[in-house]
């Protein structure tokens, strides 16, 4: 055998050029999303009873889970930015309020918070309405979806506040000095100079919170919300097939979290490329 350099090795070496590597790596894990989706579809096609029935039964729960996640997340970001700014505020009153908020709501289990908002908060609101003699509050009718969003936003807002605080603090002091030295107000400097840079820094940990949120919305099934978990439980109690039902529910959560994980890392990479 004569050892010669074959064109094949030349070809494989080309793939190792750093610039060529990146685009393939961005998409490398999409196959996992596809594989899980394929398993779900195959189960539905080849074993429609019970899998197709389960998916059809829980589909409105799936929609509720997604809506709850997305709507909550929008408000979580707003609360997170305000909370993060409050945590770094020089004004001692604002700093105190923001710190108390974060410390208190990080320290109570999310499930307990959701139960409190659903069962206790409406009663508190009604008795407060009676106290100040204000009928709209006294006759407050609880809305499970709104209260679930409130519970998720307040709890996750505390975590995300801390992420934003760290992100803002990671931007060098000279940036705000340069902005302020040109006559920008504190809020202008934050809006145009600090926050755009901080958002880039916090994107990975905030994206992680989004994935956590998808999974944690399953806790609202304990407070009369017909989300994916709740609908799964309803199907199971009607048909007594825990293995098939919970396997399918688990697969549906998995395909969502895998999909959004890919989406977030794609967004991150795109932002990094823009730089």
């Amino acid at each position: 055998m004569v050892k010669t350099a074959t064109p094949a090795t030349g070809g494989s070496e080309l793939k190792l050029i750093p610039g060529n590597e990146l685009p393939t790596r961005i998409d490398a894990w999409w196959w996992l999303v596809g594989a899980v989706a394929l398993i779900i579809i195959l189960l539905m096609v080849f074993k429609p009873d019970p899998y197709r029935n389960i998916v059809f039964f829980v589909r409105d729960g799936l929609l509720t889970t997604l809506l709850l996640t997305v709507i909550s997340f929008v408000f979580i970001l707003i609360v997170g930015i305000i909370g993060g700014l409050g945590r770094i505020a020089k004004n001692p009153a604002i700093h105190f309020v923001a710190t108390m908020y974060v410390e208190i709501f990080r320290g109570i289990p999310l499930l307990v918070q959701l139960i409190w908002w659903y069962f206790a908060a409406p009663m508190v609101i009604r008795s407060f309405g009676n106290l100040i003699d204000f009928p709209p509050l006294a006759n407050y009718q609880s809305n499970a979806f709104v209260l679930a969003v409130v519970g998720l936003v307040i709890c996750y807002g505390a975590y995300v506040s801390e992420i934003f605080r760290a992100g803002i603090e990671s931007i060098p002091r000279g940036q705000i000095e340069a902005a302020r030295s040109q006559g920008m107000t504190y809020l202008q400097a934050m809006r145009y100079v600090i926050l755009p840079q901080a958002l880039r820094v916090v994107m990975p940990p905030v994206g992680n919170e989004f994935i956590m949120l998808i999974k944690d919305t399953s806790l609202v099934s304990a407070v009369a919300m017909a989300d994916l978990t709740r609908r799964g439980r309803e199907y199971m109690s009607a048909h007594f097939n825990p293995i098939e039902t919970w396997t399918m529910v688990a697969l549906l959560y998995l395909v969502m979290t895998l999909f959004f994980t890919r989406l977030i890392s794609w967004l991150e990479k795109r932002r990094n490329l823009e730089k």
Binding site: P172, G174, Q175, E177, A178, A179, R180, S181, Q182, G183, V193, Q197
Partner: peptide
Amino acid sequence: RQEVGMVFQQFNLFP
């Protein structure tokens, strides 16, 4: 500050 321009040692341009 609008009337006073400042140039820093570390430039402090907005990246």
